[in-house]
Amino acid sequence: MVELIVYGIVLGAIIALGSIGLTLVYGIVRFANFAHGDLMTAGAYVALFLVTGLSAWLGIPDTTFGSLSFGWRMALAFPIAMLCVAGVSILLDRILYRPLRAKRSHPVIMAMSALGAAFIVRMIVLILWGADYRFYRPGVMRPAILLPLGVKIRPDQILLLLVVFSLVILLYLFLQRSKMGKAMRATADNMELARVSGIDTERVIIWTWGIGGALAGAGGILYGIDVQLHGGMGFNLLLPMFAATILGGIGNVYGALVGGLVMGIAQQVSTAYLLPTYKPAVAFIVMILILLIRPQGIFGGGRS
């Protein structure tokens, strides 16, 4: 059980990266981005291309760091793929969502547009890479480290947690200290007021999509390292991400982090009693419970 909780924290950290982006976009642009899961898929596959295709062509050695399952290739691919997904995310907003925002389209149209974007991203991934399961590095799993209480954890997973932790710290510093971060928080509070105070809200929106996309890309790559790559991977994470976002209170970044961890643990612990394929269903049940008991989330932003 302790082991499942630890694995839950690992999965939860990945979900959290997604739901932080989701909650930022939700809070600032007031938009439920159904394409967020598939942005994660896109990140994972861009990194796959960089690791197995481009790096080999550039002649970057295919060595690994110590007992980790990856090396320089992934270390370089990771930030580049994050930037690429940030670009995709901004592009989707510029091409598809912004025209609808400008026309003040009905929420039904906005939701449909986002779901369409999700499938467009996934179809492009499937056309380019096919529907087979992929790995960044073929071969056997690295030996696990034995922790107290009989918990086996792979070195990859420890690094994964460190990466998520540092990304969250970076985001915290960005939101608290930088000018753009402050502008983002102001826009989340009240877009009209932010605009009349001279904040360029369009730029804020671009940054929001960019950060959300980059974090989703990172989450997708980490999921690919931890588990495997598949065209439907991001869509399977969409429900837990939304559940985490609602649980943490919409627009609340730190709530989304906690929500992500809770959803990760809930999903992994459920595998002790249910088939692992039921993980999305578990996320759904938890979400319904949240909606019934506390729809404003545990950190009750209350704003809706």
Binding site: L238, L239, I246, A283, F284, M287, I288, L291
Partner: peptide
Amino acid sequence: YLAIATIG
């Protein structure tokens, strides 16, 4: 919320 729940 209905949209998300119906996907679920």
